[in-house]
Design a protein around this nucleic acid. Structure first.
Lengths: 217, 217
DNA sequence: GACAATTTCAAACAAGTGTTTTATATTTTT
DNA sequence: AAAAATATAAAACACTTGTTTGAAATTGTC
């Protein structure tokens, strides 16, 4: 593949167009989606020739997927770090774990981090079904699933696997919702406070979990 | 407008193409989305000429919006009925209200009702931002919001407005999530049971509400 | 510096898009 | 039945799309 440089330290120069293209893709695809972002839009934003997309990535679709993978890995790395840290902290409670997991994406929302835009795009893409969900999520889905599931069960050992799975989905629901529909939140609650959302989400999620586990710490 | 017939009883014959177009739109747009459904796809499915879309609706975009309104009104009518019925039932509990509201869309999911496809499409469209969210939701959003909010507060009078709003969002999150990601649910829990999801959702939502209201019925 | 590989470029390609046009049926009204 | 309004039809229009081409420029290697 022409995309793989010689990696001898001077690649930065020759790989510039490729990276600029990835950056432009990240921005434009998140803004307008796949269909409404043309190759000409991308190359104009990356300041390179139209043919560059096909030369470096072999097509618009591949550029899309590569951009996705780059961002998804960044997100997962952050999540991994948070969960590992919280589960290895001695006096931590269930609420602390939930707060850590929930804060991660919601704090990104607060400071307009591009990651939350990618999160939205990811959901969009799964719903649009233009590319297979496994193509985006790959193995990360299962890893995150079991990692967080185990963490929750370490706090509530009485939870069955089935209930843990359902509670995982509910937690996902509670976190994703404000990320997706932050506009609505702001419309209804003009003085929106991200920390307030975080505490609310932790409260509801913890209540849901304890409704199954019976208040056991 | 040519679309408005003389309404003298014989319109059914002449309005056929228009209705067939709306039906085809409902099906194709839900399947493939707006961008990936061409006017030629629509007219082929409705068995009429390409120009019919522009003649009857004045463009592809208007057909999309009209299809949306028709479906949204159907959905809202059903929701209205459920809430009114539950709030006027003497011995009903908070769980009964929640079960009624939650069952509505989830039961549709169970029997592959086109309404759940439209629900997915609605979220897709809000995320895609191709048409303004107010154009889809219109006044229904606020109506449903206050209607359900009041119903919840009738069971938990101690709830503040702010907390009710946040809990409304959380309830929405818990209901929408399985509708959007039913594929994931099925993947993780192969013997997926809709009634189980309903009871789970009611349990978590009620626990969240009671976490604020302090167990007050 | 010379040769080879890599990257960039302008132009063209083939296919698909929504919409408009113009003419022809069909229906409704007079 | 004649005239007017409405609906359908095939074709063309103007435009955008992703991709390919073949030559020019740049870069790395000997």
């Amino acid at each position: 593949m022409a995309a793989n440089k010689t990696l001898n330290g001077l690649e930065a120069q020759s790989a510039q167009a490729r990276d600029r293209l990835l950056d432009a893709a990240e921005r434009l695809f998140c803004e307008k989606g796949f269909d409404r972002t043309s190759v000409r839009d991308l190359t104009r934003a990356a300041d390179c020739n139209i043919a560059a997309v096909n030369y470096h990535f072999g097509g618009k679709g591949n550029l899309y997927i590569q951009m996705f993978h780059r961002q998804m890995h960044r997100m997962m790395d952050r999540h991994r770090e948070v969960i590992v840290r919280l589960t290895s902290t001695p006096g931590a409670t269930l609420e602390d774990l939930l707060r850590g997991v929930v804060s991660q994406p919601l704090k990104q929302l607060e400071r307009n981090d591009p990651s939350s835009a990618v999160m939205k795009l990811m959901v969009r893409e799964v719903l649009n079904q233009h590319i297979g969900k496994d193509e985006i999520l790959g193995s990360m889905k299962n890893e995150f699933f079991t990692m967080l599931g185990d963490a929750i069960r370490s706090f509530c050992p009485t939870l069955s696997l089935r209930n843990t799975q359902m509670l995982f989905f509910s937690l996902d629901a509670l976190v994703i919702h404000p990320v997706l529909f932050s506009d609505f939140y702001l419309e209804v609650i003009p003085d929106l406070d991200i920390d307030g959302i975080i505490e609310h989400t932790v409260k509801v999620a913890a209540a849901g979990i304890r409704a199954y586990a019976g208040g056991g710490d």
